[in-house]
């Protein structure tokens, strides 16, 4: 299991080879011995890679790590291994989990929707539930109208098929 990083648009993996007495990593088939001196009062620290010591400041923000190493500043993207491995196209079919009635429609065929955007609101068992787009996409068909009742499993809205993403 390796970590996938992106720096300047190029993707590379960093692998852990060993931890003791010092951390050993490989990057692009080269081996590096690494150790870090813990942060002192100002929050920075040092990292030594193959005997070369660098002053370092670093912070993680979501799937990026911003760092200053020596006098240079970088922002490195880190891909979650589960996201990296996920590969299938996500279905664009929005179906009913239970029977109900449509109370509001927020999209129409051709609407460009972002993941999480509301598509419609239905009422079932005295509860109003808003169904959101499972992914970015374009609405291809709206199969229901306001006040229309539907059964469990009914197709309510369809998004245009997603382009196959390449497995990583």
């Amino acid at each position: 299991m390796a970590v996938i990083l992106t720096l300047d648009g190029e993707t590379t993996t960093v692998e852990i080879l060993g931890r003791k007495p010092q951390l050993r990593c490989s990057v692009e088939d080269r081996y590096y011995v690494v150790y870090e001196t813990p942060a002192e009062t100002d929050g920075g620290g040092w990292i030594t890679v193959n005997g070369v010591r660098h002053r370092i400041w670093r912070i993680q923000e979501g799937e990026r790590v911003h760092l200053k190493i020596g006098n240079r500043i970088f922002s490195v993207g880190i891909t979650d291994p589960i996201d990296a491995a996920r590969q299938t196209t996500r279905s664009g079919e929005i179906r009913a989990d239970m029977p109900g009635v449509i109370v509001a429609l927020s999209c129409e065929p051709g609407s460009n929707v972002r993941a999480g955007e509301a598509l419609l609101t239905l009422e079932s068992m005295k509860m109003q539930i808003t169904l959101n787009a499972p992914r970015d996409g374009i609405v291809s068909t709206v199969h229901v109208a306001i006040n229309q009742a539907f059964q469990k499993g009914a197709l309510l809205v369809a998004l245009e098929p997603e382009k196959e993403s390449s497995p990583s």
């Binding site: 970590v3 080269r30 890679v49 193959n50 660098h54 790590v65 240079r72 970088f74 490195v76 979650d80």
Partner: peptide, 20 residues
């Protein structure tokens, strides 16, 4: 070598990698 240092330093700044 510097690129590798940046990547390793960044990896070590990632909670998941650090945990690993």
């Amino acid at each position: 070598a510097m690129r590798a240092s940046v990547l390793i330093a960044a990896a070590l700044g990632n909670d998941d990698f650090r945990r690993m």
